[in-house]
Design a protein around this nucleic acid. Structure first.
Lengths: 157, 157
DNA sequence: CTAGTAATGGAAATGATTTTCATTAAACAA
DNA sequence: TTGTTTAATGAAAATCATTTCCATTACTAG
């Protein structure tokens, strides 16, 4: 973690300075890639996309930056169970568009969905409240993911 | 994956042979440990517990066996986001006792809970059905986990 | 009893992520 | 603008959970 709770909402620039972080070329490059190519990039994916324009940005920096971005709350770090983390922008300039993920265990493709989100969110909120009260547990975060076979992979069997 | 769908319910012994697997001493030792010490053991945890009685069972075998057990459906492989997998018996001799997990991000302790399970299961079932229909996705599995601070860790801050 | 094949263990390999450390460059004050 | 302070950086090395290799052992069906 590090320097306190810097999570919240808002859009870049100010966000950094406020938390004592510096906004460097490399960091902007990474944010830029994330905002353009929407969805589920691994550190290496980002490295490959950033490299042509910024050949001097190393993989180490990608990792460090993603860590910072996720601390600041600009990026979500996702785990689809394939041994490498994925990252996606927490929100566009327009704000957050809440969605969950559907992961194909065969081709590893990830589908975003927004159906049932309201009911899910409602239940999750209830559960968080209930569990928090019962176990004196302060819930900060949850993970809900569905795994299975996408249409294509399911057909092939 | 491997040799077809060997998932289902039932208790040991028969399970193995039926799927073409052999029930060896090492495998029984691992099942034994899992059934005694309930909850969330890592491969190394298991290794350490098995080793005194079976010094000749290596870590590699633990991993391989856990893989088999999880294929056969006797064991759930869990991921609490700390970089190592955990394993728990899918069911006791009495049958499954469905529960979910509450993970403390500070001390990494994991709490089982069974509250709200009915509502959760209901919603998850609905969602699975809905998503399955809409995206032609065959959902086989889901993950729902809450993260936060346990009473102790929360108090310390 | 014997062939066929699954299971095993130890060592080496893998691969994503972190750490180390010397160098560079934001940020802010003078 | 110019320092000065300290965060940020890159390259290489280190970590560490998990897998793979490979030669050996041991179930099991015939």
């Amino acid at each position: 973690m590090g320097r306190g709770n810097c999570q919240g909402q808002g859009w870049w620039h100010g966000k950094f300075r406020g938390c004592g972080y510096r906004l460097t070329a490399g960091r902007e490059a990474i944010l830029d890639i994330l905002s353009k190519s929407e969805g589920h990039l691994s550190a290496e994916d980002i490295y490959i996309k950033v490299h042509p324009n910024y050949p001097n940005v190393g993989l180490t920096t990608i990792y460090r930056t993603l860590d910072v971005l996720s601390n600041v709350g600009l990026v979500y770090k996702l785990d689809f169970g394939d041994g490498r983390a994925r990252y996606e922008l927490a929100q566009g300039p327009k704000g957050a568009h809440h969605h969950h993920h559907l992961v194909c265990t065969e081709c590893n493709k990830v589908f975003d969905y927004t159906d049932f989100i309201d009911e899910e969110v409602e239940l999750l909120r209830e559960t968080e409240k209930g569990l928090g009260a019962k176990y004196n547990f302060k819930i900060t975060n949850h993970v809900l993911q569905f795994y299975g076979l996408c249409e294509k992979c399911n057909g092939r069997k």
